[in-house]
């Protein structure tokens, strides 16, 4: 693995402290993800996979250890710095889609560009492209609740990719979808990855994990196994 590193963590820790109880969500995670990789994180409920994804996505900060993003140590970055990195480099896809109910499909997709200060004409162009790529251009003026689950998730992916981020973080992206729509979404993520975007995905589903290059198994806040997806690599080799 001599490719350029996008993410590097060392002894990453996360502890939650409530009134009397201290819970360890991550107990020293060492992870290296190269640019262009597609990584699936798996493990039982409560193993810390979502926590890890949130930290990798700069939505949460670690309690200990070190976290480098694009070679820069951002373990102790301020909220404002992290927001800045998020808006320029990251795209998120959630299990429950998380589209804003009061905005149309088109407006939802345009949102990241608005915070980036992209011009109106450029926004228009990029949003249209993203919608066409996801096959939802005919739904541009609909509100999220008027869409099927699959369409909502495609809109969410369009939103995650419209700003051409270097990393897409997906948290159970097929969790709320039936198998047909689930496969569609996985195909889209694969497509994005093949176009050069790094994808990190948390999933329960072994079949979804099959799409990844590498599967990281977490248990009790620690990485227990890290496997190359043999079948995938074999397919690539053929």
């Amino acid at each position: 693995m001599n490719k350029e590193l996008l993410i590097e963590t060392k002894q990453l820790q996360k502890k939650y402290v409530t009134d009397t109880v201290e819970t360890t969500a991550l107990a020293g995670v060492d992870l290296r993800i190269a640019k262009g990789e597609f990584v699936a994180i798996m493990g039982p409920s409560g193993c810390g996979k979502s926590t890890l994804l949130n930290i990798l996505g700069l939505l949460d900060s670690p309690s200990g250890g070190m976290f480098k993003f694009q070679g820069e140590d951002i373990t102790h970055a301020s909220e404002r710095q992290r927001a800045k990195i998020r808006k320029h480099n990251l795209g998120f896809v959630f299990q429950s889609f998380n589209l804003i109910d009061e905005l149309t499909v088109e407006e939802n997709i345009a949102l990241p560009l608005a915070y980036l200060g992209v011009s109106k004409a450029e926004t228009e162009k990029r949003v249209t492209e993203a919608m066409e790529r996801m096959g939802i251009a005919h739904r541009r003026n609909h509100f999220p609740q008027q869409l099927s689950g699959g369409q909502q998730q495609r809109a969410a992916i369009a939103r995650a990719t419209v700003s051409s981020p270097s990393l897409i973080l997906a948290d159970e992206p097929t969790g709320n979808l039936d198998s047909v729509h689930g496969r569609e979404v996985m195909a889209l993520l694969t497509e994005l990855n093949e176009a050069g975007t790094t994808v990190v995905m948390v999933t329960h589903s072994p079949s979804d994990a099959e799409y990844a290059h590498r599967i990281v198994n977490l248990f009790d806040g620690q990485i227990v196994t890290e496997n190359l997806n043999v079948r995938k690599h074999a397919a690539e080799l053929l």
Binding site: G57, L59, E79, R80, A83, K84, R86, K87, H88, F92, N98, L99, I100, D101, E102, L111, P112, Y115, L116, R159, S163
Partner: peptide, 16 residues
């Protein structure tokens, strides 16, 4: 709340 969370995810600053 969801809207706020989402806006932050896509990079909104708190001041915004």
């Amino acid at each position: 709340a969801r809207e706020v969370g989402l806006r932050k995810v896509v990079g909104a600053y708190r001041s915004q």
